[in-house]
Design a protein around this nucleic acid. Structure first.
Lengths: 138, 138
DNA sequence: TTTAATTAGTTAGTCTAACTAACTAATTTC
DNA sequence: GAAATTAGTTAGTTAGACTAACTAATTAAA
């Protein structure tokens, strides 16, 4: 079984497992990622999130729309009239606080299979591989 | 940036990159996975593939249908009348031979970021994490 | 031997997480 | 000032799943 298939299999199970945690709160994985990003980074724009996640803006835009409608995030406009500064509302933070411990536990549990050194090495490798793909394998 | 987001980002780029290799041959990633599986394992059934990929049978079934219609795989029936034994046709093997070198090169290039020992450890960890998720983190 | 349970594979429908194309409005560059 | 770029949105599409329901075949239990 190749490394790449194992990544694929693991990733699928992991996201599926996340879904079981998030679905009772009516959140998709991507919704959660947005909540988490805002909690960690604070005030930020759609473009920045898209860059961080390495996705296109409409993907972020759709999640912003969903969570704004649910009152979980709020929007402020900056000096640049085009930009929307996103942050969590109080109920957004509350919901985050309810969910995060379980996800944290899951992640810690999974990461306990790796030493800190290994984790660091693997993350580095993932990053390098990603760069290779980004730069066209030059 | 968490390990899990890095896996996600890498995986997405990798599959996107595979798509650019496969699309000129009018193959999806999943189509290629099927070609590759049959090339590596030979005669096999839909259920076995579903197990190996860790997906549901309809997922495999759909890909079998596509590639059968294109004449890339063929079906033989076994003693158990329900089972379909799948294998590559000659044109399936030909197409595989055209595509595989490029994918192999890509994978080798990516894996060059890891020592063999690291790759082994990484795969082991992925496997363990997968088992944890499978068994419900007991 | 008959009935019940399980399995192989298919079809139809649904969902998630993307993407592209096209667009308006705002900002920056020439 | 005009052209180019950027922020964000909308609409449409695709890929890769999944579940539910089903038929037919096989296996297990009574």
């Amino acid at each position: 079984m190749t490394f790449f298939l194992q990544i694929h299999r693991f990733h699928k199970r992991y996201t599926t497992h996340l879904t079981t945690i998030l679905a009772p709160h009516e959140l998709s994985n991507a919704n959660w990622s947005l909540l988490h990003y805002l909690m960690e980074h604070g005030l930020t724009t759609t473009s920045q999130i898209a860059k961080y996640w390495d996705v296109e803006k409409p993907t972020v835009s759709a999640n912003v729309k969903t969570l704004t409608q649910r009152g979980l995030i709020q929007i402020k406009y900056g000096e640049d009239k085009r930009e929307k500064y996103l942050s969590l509302t109080e109920s957004g933070e509350d919901l985050y606080g309810i969910i995060f411990p379980e996800i944290k536990l899951l992640q810690q549990r999974l990461l306990s299979t790796l030493t800190e050194e290994q984790q660091k090495k693997f993350q580095q490798a993932l990053n390098e591989m990603e760069q290779l793909l980004k730069e066209g394998l030059t």
